[in-house]
């Protein structure tokens, strides 16, 4: 018995082939083609922006990222450009931080309510409302932010300034708090709620029932269950959702353009009414731009493209890693 086993030659694995029908082949081709379109379009946009913007990056150098000025000067010898998006990058970061700090806790609370507390009927209704928020035109958020939110938020900003101005970020060079990154961030916070909420809601709902029951059987309160079981399980999903929200906050254009006082000045003071973000700057300058300025705007777009790509890749990385180690 054993000798036959030893002497038997080990076969190489056979190739597994099938001969699909023509209709199947065609369908497969069509689906593959359309499936790759997304990748293709994204690549083409990236290529377009880099090719058109590369000249600016060449002439302006690394300073394009750090300079706070955007000057086009006409002289006898021609036009000179001194352009940088430093102020806009700074503004983008500030607005996004405000949006995340305010929006993510709100979204988590909303997701917890929808998953664990809301009665079935209210739940369906609220979920559709939250989804509707995602589809809402952002200019409407901007207008609402300008006319309704701003008067209140200015008051809040003054309060924060009054009591916390010793923190550098909450200080201001002048007593001017309208159209600030703070207020733009608040508007963005509301705009990222739908995406963060829906991702958080989905991961919370997937918490294994046996762990929830284990906690309850140990005499836990509902809050205890959420803290001990739901959060550890859902944290990676929430981080992923927050990163998606961040992606949106980076790229949001119209709402920020409506609310924010776009100024090419390095402003670290989140309450002070001066700032900007890359996307809204492009809109602001687009109409009047000619020649090299247009190219510079495309270069700014390329930077924005890279930033968004980086954030989303980071989100994927975090989610995948925590999923691997966590459970």
């Amino acid at each position: 018995m054993s000798t036959t086993l030893e002497t038997a030659p080990i076969p190489t694995p056979r190739a597994l082939t099938t001969n699909p029908r023509t209709s199947d082949k065609i369908f497969r081709g069509v689906v593959t083609g359309f499936g790759m379109t997304a990748l293709l379009i994204l690549t083409l946009i990236g290529l377009f922006l880099s090719v058109r913007g590369i000249q600016t990056l060449h002439t302006q150098g690394f300073g394009f990222l750090t300079r706070y000025s955007w000057e086009v000067t006409q002289t006898d010898s021609g036009t000179t450009y001194n352009m940088g998006i430093g102020a806009m990058l700074l503004g983008t970061v500030m607005i996004s931080i405000v949006a995340l700090v305010v929006g993510v806790p709100l979204s988590i609370a909303m997701a917890l309510f929808l998953t664990f507390y809301a009665p079935a009927r209210i739940k369906t209704f609220l979920v559709s409302i939250v989804d509707l928020m995602a589809a809402f035109p952002s200019v409407l958020f901007g207008l609402w932010g300008f006319f309704v939110l701003m008067p209140m938020a200015t008051y809040w900003a003054k309060l924060i300034f009054k009591y916390l101005h010793w923190i550098p970020a909450f200080n201001a060079p002048q007593y001017f708090f309208e159209r600030s990154p703070f207020i733009a961030g608040l508007v963005l916070a509301i705009m990222i709620i739908p995406i963060v909420t829906s991702v958080a809601r989905e991961v919370f709902a997937q918490t294994p029932l046996d762990r929830i029951q284990a906690a309850y059987a140990l005499g836990s309160t509902k809050w205890g269950v959420i803290k001990a079981v739901v959060f550890p399980f859902g944290s990676s999903g929430v981080v992923g959702g927050a990163m998606l929200g961040l992606g949106r906050a980076f790229g949001e254009t119209v709402a920020v353009y409506t609310v924010l006082n776009i100024v090419f000045k390095g402003n670290f003071h989140v309450l002070y009414g001066a700032g900007g973000n890359v996307a809204s700057m492009i809109i602001l300058k687009w109409g009047e731009a000619t020649g090299d300025e247009t190219t510079a705007l495309l270069a700014a777009g390329f930077i924005l493209f890279l930033l968004t790509l980086l954030v989303n890749l980071g989100a994927n990385f975090i989610v995948r890693n925590t999923l691997k180690s966590g459970k």
Partner: peptide
């Protein structure tokens, strides 16, 4: 209560699992 399927909390260590009830309650 002890359940049919073992259901320790996977995010906690062995020690934390044993003492988890104290924390929860």
């Amino acid at each position: 209560m002890v359940f049919q399927k073992p259901n320790p909390f996977p995010s906690m260590t062995i020690g934390e699992n044993v003492l988890s009830g104290l924390k929860l309650a």
